[in-house]
Each structure stands twice: as structure tokens, then as C-alpha cells.
Write a protein that binds this DNA or RNA. Structure first.
Lengths: 345, 345
DNA sequence: CTGAAAGCGCTAACAA
DNA sequence: TTGTTAGCGCTTTCAG
């Protein structure tokens, strides 16, 4: 701008010789404007390089066309993929996404949600850092913006959620191992709950259990290694911890291991590699959460692959419906995982 | 809210028995308010659960305390790490980050930048999808918000940039290979330029060249495999393309290869694995851009590791300085890479 | 030390 | 078919 400040609707109105409301209606197509006036306004807009001030629009209309996505941890590729899925859907509805990373920190998460609400997002999609604490509940019960949880669900209030069929995924992976002749199958994972094992992991264990039960195989407590602190520990500690869990499993007759999540699989793989345990001959391996390294490793590692983009898309679709005021009961959508068999099982 | 709408400063003023301006000044600590009035206002704020409306603040003050980070491709872990670096710095200054992914698409990038400007961000940090096209220049020359480029620099206008010492990184990696006795060293990469090789890659090649020159080794054209379309091709195609580049190199006497970026290294590694070429005995390997899979692979792969968080932090620091009006000439900061030697070299 | 009041740029009645 | 105008919730000048 020669002037220094960006042109406003007032400026456009003046150069087009119409009222501001006419400009507004041309910009938003919110009421009929004569061919001729429309032309003059559009001409003026081009001439001045006018762009509507979203902040003012937002303040005045109460809508921002903005969706906030608060992610527990963006270092996790899985969540970036979910973000893509969300973006592709809301883009079609004319909404924009703003992504915020909570770095697995509950305090940051709270701040991020508050910040987004203060900034007037029309809806929120959340991967909560913590599924049992209620710091989010407090925030959101004071607010009537629609919320959708994805991948993890914070319990105890009104919202939709889109989750993986955890039980089914674990069931299929375990069944595959059983069909390959394994009868001593270990389970290694972190969980994100503080006291109890979080729901996601409970469901995965349940799938593991069901497959055993169906095959008439017993469940042995010492085959299941679960450590708390999935959200508290930094990556390196998680790897070290899962390394140790695998070491313990190696003292049992286990001939296959199902990793309940990706930090677990990294430690497990490193342990097996260091100990020169042959995969899959001595220990077969399948893990939840697909990742690039699983294909690059030798041998390549089988995975229960989550349809991340689809989870995001489903969450976004649900949110859009609710924003558009389509009434429907709150619910939980479950998406199935893909079992990708590679060389490790 | 029982009422349905959130409380405003007016509400707070009324219950505290003061003027709105007093409330504002208490909230922002922008002028002295008596102990007593402050107390009453704070009491009212707590009682009503008041939170200042950021949108209104933004409209009125012209500042948003928001920094936009437009990333060429969030699937690249490297950029997520940069985002963390940015966040950690601007957070200390009381700013929030909003992250947007352009998915390597120039049109989306443009839209994202426009969207952020329209929403009133106080500054922008960009990883441009394209360093030679000027679609960004047009946008930004019409705007006086400070901009900092990180990792990649769009040429031709006033802005700071924070880049890697590409030449130095390539030089050190090449020198390491030469010291290990290699005299036939290949170079494989993508570049992001349309016609010419983009600057980043030119610099890396220059480092490769310098190391050769210094050792009195000749540069052979057929040892350098570079393909255009780094930003255009999807991942799978890039891997296939670099796979082919490595196949071609295998017809030369090359005994070591430096990968100029991570998509190249994936194809190279897969090719070597498929052909059962022993690393590092038959072909040694170093790649730019550290990634988890490099440590999980057998053998683990050496890397020129970019200090991603530091790049982000430096960019953010620079931006903050400029936003605070500290005058300084535009410039380019170069950060050094770490050479991490693993089993592949 | 505090209050009144003018607007930031836009939307949406209401009026013509 | 279009214009006038009252705010959205806040900041900040000016007056007291």
C-alpha cells in the first residue's frame, strides 16, 4: 500500500460509489446486487487490492471459519497424517485449519485449547494428552463449540469421537500369529493412563485376549509387559523402558511379540537386534502403528496400520455436520486398521 | 454460562462497579489501577469466568500475538522439529504459533499465507515450496509484516533467513569419506528448482566439490545424479526415482555415495538392499537429514544431521526482534550441521 | 487515579 | 435494488 494501511470496505465503497453494505454483500454474495454495481465493486476491489479483514468479520459475525486441531504430540507422524485428513475435508467446506502441538504436556494442551477458543475457532478436534483427567472437561463445559476427539477420547462429556477399532486390530494381529503356530505370544506397550491402563490399551489387550480364548490358548500374566508413563516419558526413556520389557520377555518361552504402540516397538526391535535374536525365526513381531522405519528395517516389520487420514477425515466430517447444525446424537465412530504382514511374522 | 453468551468486559465492569477502561487496564496491566479497584475487578473476573476476547483485542489493537508458520510439507519430520523450535522461543515472548501445511503445493501455500495475513498474524515464518517462483513475493510486498525464511529461502525480496551451512555439511561428509579411503564418491539428490538446481542443492554440491578439490580428486559428472521435481513428485515416486539413480551409479566404479536429501537416501538404501550390495564394504553411505529409520536400519546410516530445533529457534528469535521494532539489516544466519557417523561409512 | 467515548472493519437489521 | 446505521468487544485518547 502506498498509503501504508490496507484498504477497507469503506475505501472500496468510496471508489465504487456505493455503500459499504453493498460491498459487503458483493464480497459475501449475501444478497442480490445489480450486475452493474457488482461490476463496479469488483473493479474497485481489484484496483485497491482489497481483502476482507477476517478479524473484523469474525468479531462481527461470531464465526471464524477456523477449525483448531490440538495434537498431543506432533512428533508422531500418525497425527500429522490425521491433520492432513482433517484439512482435506474442512477445506471443501471453506474452513481453515490451525494446528497446535501440546508436546504431550497437559498444561500446554490446556493453554492451546484456551487460546483457540479465545481466538474464536468454530470447532475443535482434539487428541487429548490424557484421557482420564478432567482439565479439558472444565474448559469445554463452559463453551458450546462442537468438539470431536480423534484417536484418543477424553471421557465424561458430550462430544463425538473417532477411534480405531483397537480390539479388532489386536485380535487380527494375534490371530495371525496364532495361525503361524505361535502359542507363546508376548504383549509389550506403554499406556497413557495415570493409575489404570488407558482405554486404548485395554481394548488392544482385550483383542489379544479374545484371540487367545478363541484358540483355546491360556493368557499368561508374565507375557504381558505394560509400563505407565507413555505421555510423561521422553522418547529415549520410552525406548529404554521397552528395551527392558523385551529383555524380561526373553526370559520366558515367548516366540512372538505384539507391540501395543510404536515407542514400544522401537525398544523391542533394538533389544532383539542387540541380542542377535533372529526375527522372525526366534521371535516373530508385529506392532501397532505403521511407520517408515518398519519397512526400512531388516527384516521389515509387520504392522497394524491405522488409517490416519481417514480418521482425520471422519472426525472433520462429523465436526462439519455439527457446525452446520445438523442435529444428531453424540457418538463414537470406529475405523478398522489394516494388518500389513511383512517379513517379521 | 447460564446466560449462553460469554461475559465481556462490560459485564465485569458492571459487577465490579468500575469503568470498562479500568477493567481493560487491569487485564493488560497497561496503567496503574488502585489496589482496591484491581481487587474488585479480579474478583469479578473470577466470579464471571471472564476471558478477554482475542478477536476484539486484535481488531482494536492491530496486534494478534500470533505467529504463522507455513510449512512446505509437514510429513517431513524435520519441519515439525523446526516448529517446536519456533514455539519454544515465541512462547517466551507471549506469542502463539499457528502451523499450516502446504503439502508441497504452491497454490495451497499462497492460500495459507493469505489466510494468515487476513487473520492478522504479527509475523510469518516460511519454508517456501519453491525458491524461484515469485508468487510469495507478490503477496508479501503488499504487506509490511516481518517474514523470516527457514531452511529454504525464496529469493528476491526483503526478509531474514535462517539456513543450514549446506556447503560445510557436504564438505565434511565428503571429506570423511575421502579420509576413509574413497576416491569414487557418488552424489544422489532431488532438487526443488524448476529449471536450475535450487540453491540448497547447489551449495551441497559445492561442498562435495571442494572436498574433492582439496584432496586433489577429480569430479566426475557421471558420479552426480540429480533429478528435478523434489517438490512435485509424491513420496513413492521420489523413492522410485532415487532407486533408479542409484542403479545407474552402480554401473560406475563408485564405492561411496552421499545422498543430498532424505527422499534420495530412501531409494538408495532400498536399491542397495535389493541388490544385496554390502554397506559399507561395497558401498559406503552418508545422507543429509537425520531420521529415525537411519538408526533402525542394518547397518545404521551416517547422517549430516540438521539442528532443526535450533534453526526454528533462530528464525523465531530473529522474527521477535523485528516485531519488537529493533532495527537491524536483513540478513541470513547459517547454522552448522552435525556429522553423525554410524555403521554405513 | 478513573471514566467517557470514539472507533478498529465488518455484518445485518431496518428503512427507503 | 440499495443505503444508513447500530453495534461485535475491545483499546486508548482525552478529560477530569
Amino acid at each position: 500500500m502506498a498509503n501504508g494501511r490496507s484498504p477497507t470496505m469503506k475505501d472500496v465503497a468510496k471508489t465504487a460509489g456505493v455503500a459499504v453494505s453493498t460491498v459487503s454483500h458483493v464480497v459475501n454474495r449475501s444478497r442480490f446486487v445489480s450486475e452493474e454495481a457488482t461490476e463496479r465493486v469488483e473493479q474497485a476491489i481489484r484496483q485497491l487490492g482489497f481483502r476482507a479483514n477476517r478479524v473484523a468479520q469474525n468479531l462481527r459475525s461470531g464465526r471464524s471459519n477456523l477449525i483448531g486441531f490440538v495434537v498431543s504430540n506432533l512428533y508422531n507422524y500418525f497425527y500429522v497424517r490425521i491433520a492432513r485428513g482433517i484439512e482435506s475435508v474442512i477445506g471443501k467446506y471453506g474452513y481453515h485449519l490451525t494446528l497446535i502441538d501440546s508436546q504431550e504436556r497437559t498444561d500446554l494442551e490446556q493453554e492451546n485449547i484456551e487460546s483457540l477458543i479465545d481466538r474464536g475457532v468454530d470447532g475443535l478436534i482434539l487428541v487429548p494428552t490424557c484421557t482420564t483427567c478432567d482439565h479439558i472437561g472444565k474448559l469445554l463445559s463452559a463453551d458450546d463449540r462442537p468438539i470431536v476427539f480423534v484417536d484418543r477420547e477424553a471421557i465424561g462429556f458430550q462430544a463425538d469421537s473417532v477411534l480405531l477399532s483397537n480390539e479388532e486390530g489386536a485380535y487380527r494381529a494375534t490371530k495371525h500369529l496364532i495361525e503361524k503356530g505361535h502359542v507363546d505370544i508376548g504383549f509389550v506397550a506403554f499406556h497413557f493412563g495415570h493409575d489404570e491402563i488407558d482405554m486404548t490399551m485395554q481394548e488392544r489387550i482385550e483383542g489379544y485376549r479374545k484371540a487367545h480364548q478363541e484358540a483355546g490358548l491360556p493368557i499368561r500374566k508374565n507375557y504381558i509387559e505394560i509400563t505407565a508413563g507413555g505421555s510423561v516419558l521422553v522418547n529415549e526413556l520410552r525406548h529404554a523402558e521397552s528395551y527392558r520389557m523385551m529383555e524380561r520377555l526373553l526370559t520366558t518361552p515367548v516366540s512372538a511379540v505384539l507391540c501395543g504402540n510404536s515407542p514400544a516397538s522401537i525398544g523391542v526391535f533394538m533389544c532383539l537386534k542387540d541380542r542377535k535374536v533372529k526375527i522372525p525365526e526366534e521371535i516373530a513381531m508385529i506392532t501397532f502403528d505403521d511407520d517408515l522405519w518398519l519397512t526400512m528395517a531388516t527384516p521389515s516389520i509387520s504392522a497394524v496400520a491405522q488409517p490416519a487420514e481417514l480418521l482425520g477425515a471422519a472426525a472433520a466430517e462429523r465436526l462439519m455436520q455439527r457446525i452446520q447444525g445438523k442435529p444428531q446424537p453424540y457418538g463414537c465412530i470406529r475405523l478398522k486398521a489394516d494388518l500389513i504382514i511383512r517379513d517379521s511374522s
